[in-house]
């Protein structure tokens, strides 16, 4: 097992290098200089000032020199400082990442909890009314532009009915609340983003679960189990489900980048101070060091996600350990 993990970890290195290379060049081939924003079209800025700013940011060196310098630094986990406010990039990300991870992990668990039973029932009662209506239901979740649904629900639940807060993470006087009020307040603020994010991600996983379960039910050992006279519930839950859930773990690992990417929309509409918005702002302001760090860290998280999925898969199913290289 240890050897398997080490091998997988070593395999990540070339991927990481590729990731840094792609991020770096995509960003540097773009027009727009970060220093421009500093002045925001203020007529009181002279040209000398602008040139001075450009020099200060080291952007006048050739691009490959910039890349090598940057790579040398990130190996030491030094992602540089933000072009916008001069603060260490890694510190800014560290402050924003937990919220994004929390929302994504919670909604992933929610997806898993709903998608698995949904997929199982759909597979068992294949082509039934339930199956068909669930298909439509999960696809509606996928097909709704999230910001649109979010806005409608905010208007309904937040403004018209007044049952949930509209935006933000905490109430104004949060700091004066007691522990339970704090938990309740946070849960209220995060309920909509998490549920919505789960709703939009439900389609993929529940469809996979259904397919996976349908296949599992066709497997020879199921016939054997049935032939042995085991009760149907035991056939389904003990034999088929176990095998059907396994691939879902991998799929969840693969869905990490999609969730992180989608957080841009959620965090903007719900005014949540997470990673997605940090990235969007960095893009809009040409904050190169921040963009690169976010891309690299985002991709790195995906790698970790995949690795975790692989390891847990291998842990459950020893065949993987030996067959994968």
């Amino acid at each position: 097992m240890i050897r398997f993990i080490i091998k997988r970890l070593l395999g990540l290195l070339p991927l990481l290098l590729g990731i840094t290379l792609i991020s770096f060049f995509v960003i540097h081939l773009s027009p727009g200089e970060p220093t421009v924003l500093q002045e925001s079209m203020n007529p009181k800025v002279s040209l000398e000032v602008k040139e001075r700013l450009l020099k200060l940011y080291d952007l006048d060196k050739p691009i490959y020199v910039q890349y090598i310098n940057w790579l040398a630094r990130i190996i030491r986990f030094d992602f540089g400082t933000s072009f916008i406010d001069g603060r260490p990039v890694i510190e800014k990300i560290a402050r924003r990442l937990p919220l994004t991870l929390f929302i994504n992990i919670t909604s992933m668990m929610l997806i898993f909890l709903i998608a698995v039973p949904l997929g199982v029932i759909s597979a068992v009662k294949k082509n039934s009314v339930f199956d068909r209506s669930m298909t439509i239901f999960v696809f509606i979740g996928f097909a709704m532009p999230t910001f649109w649904l979010a806005l409608l629900l905010m208007d309904l639940l937040g403004v018209k009915l007044g049952v949930l807060p509209v935006v933000g993470l905490k109430s104004i006087d949060f700091e004066y609340f007691n522990f339970f009020e704090k938990i309740f307040d946070l849960a209220g603020h995060l309920a909509l983003p998490i549920v919505l994010s789960a709703f939009s991600g439900l389609a993929g996983i529940s469809r996979y679960m259904r397919t996976s379960m349908v296949n599992a039910l066709k497997a020879p050992y199921i016939y054997t189990a049935r032939a042995k006279g085991l009760p149907e519930s035991q056939v389904i839950f003990k034999h088929a489900l176990r095998n059907a859930v396994l691939p879902i773990v991998t799929i969840l690992g693969l869905s990490v980048p999609g969730l992180i990417g989608g957080s841009v929309i959620f965090e903007t509409i719900f005014s949540l101070p997470g990673m997605g918005r940090l990235f969007y702002e960095a893009v809009m302001q040409r904050d190169y060091s921040m963009i690169m760090a976010s891309l690299v860290i985002g991709a790195f998280l995906t790698l970790i996600g995949n690795l975790l999925a692989d390891i847990s898969y291998a842990y459950v199913d020893p065949r993987i350990r030996y067959s994968k290289q």
């Binding site: 905010m154 937040g158 509209v166 933000g168 104004i172 005014s271």
Partner: peptide, 20 residues
């Protein structure tokens, strides 16, 4: 004086309606 950061102007308007 508390300045909240709300990037989307239309959700800000919803928030005004909740008197926050």
């Amino acid at each position: 004086i508390i300045t909240r950061i709300i990037p989307d102007s239309d959700t800000l308007f919803l928030e005004l309606q909740t008197k926050n």
